[in-house]
């Protein structure tokens, strides 16, 4: 009986040991690659919210140990040219997280929805990209060998924010057009940006 318990433990230990060693090696092999992917995603987001800021110096502004926003500096001088921040608000069924870039005068340079889990087909349209690729075209493309290059498409909803001033942001015709049937999700994006943006502008201006 005692002998059995010892044997079982030994076998379990062996199995676990082998499994753990394999996992450790896989972890170290993939680690640099995963970090690279994460950095690339961050850079891509930054490029989208502040197209001119690529290569500029970013400095996180911390408050109570939490990163509130990033100050963006132009060139080697210490002039702040704008801020990048992440705005959050509960929409219809999830927290909508948006990364926003603003110039120091309060004009939005671009926004990007980072995370959302809204209703597919309605609220989720805040990240929808209208592509004119159709099945027929794609099938034709296989045979014609002519690659139609399409520029990087951006969601039409978030594109509306570009160039608008943070103070004059609101959901209405002629301003930010809400997604049909998804007023609540659209409102969450607009309001979260406005609230956080005004807070940051008021503090550092």
């Amino acid at each position: 009986m005692n002998n059995n318990i010892l044997r079982f433990s030994l076998i379990l230990f062996l199995v676990n040991f082998v499994a753990a060693s394999i996992l450790v090696s896989v972890y170290y092999i993939t680690k640099p690659r995963i970090e690279l992917q994460q950095r690339m995603m961050e850079e891509e987001s930054l490029e989208q919210v502040m197209p001119e800021s690529v290569g500029d110096r970013l400095e996180p502004v911390k408050e109570d140990g939490e990163i509130k926003c990033w100050k963006v500096f132009k060139g080697p001088g210490s002039r702040v040219r704008g801020y990048v921040f992440i705005a959050k608000k509960y929409g219809y069924s999830s927290v909508v997280e948006t990364m926003v870039g603003i110039n120091n005068d309060g004009t939005i340079t671009g926004i990007r929805i980072l995370n959302q889990n809204e209703t597919p087909g309605l609220g989720a349209k805040i990240v929808e990209v209208v592509s004119n690729k159709t099945l027929l075209k794609a099938l034709k493309g296989i045979f014609s060998r002519e690659k139609e290059s399409e520029g990087k498409l951006l969601p039409y909803f978030t594109e509306q924010f570009k160039g608008r001033h943070i103070r004059r942001l609101e959901l209405s015709n002629g301003n930010i057009q809400a997604i049909t049937g998804a007023t609540i999700s659209s409102k969450a994006v607009v309001e979260s940006i406005k609230e956080k943006g005004l807070e940051i502008l008021g503090r550092y201006e």
Binding site: I22, L23, V26, Y27, T30, R33, I34, Q37
Partner: peptide, 10 residues
Amino acid sequence: TIVELVMKAY
């Protein structure tokens, strides 16, 4: 776990 790590990386 291997699948998860590889998927995250590639």
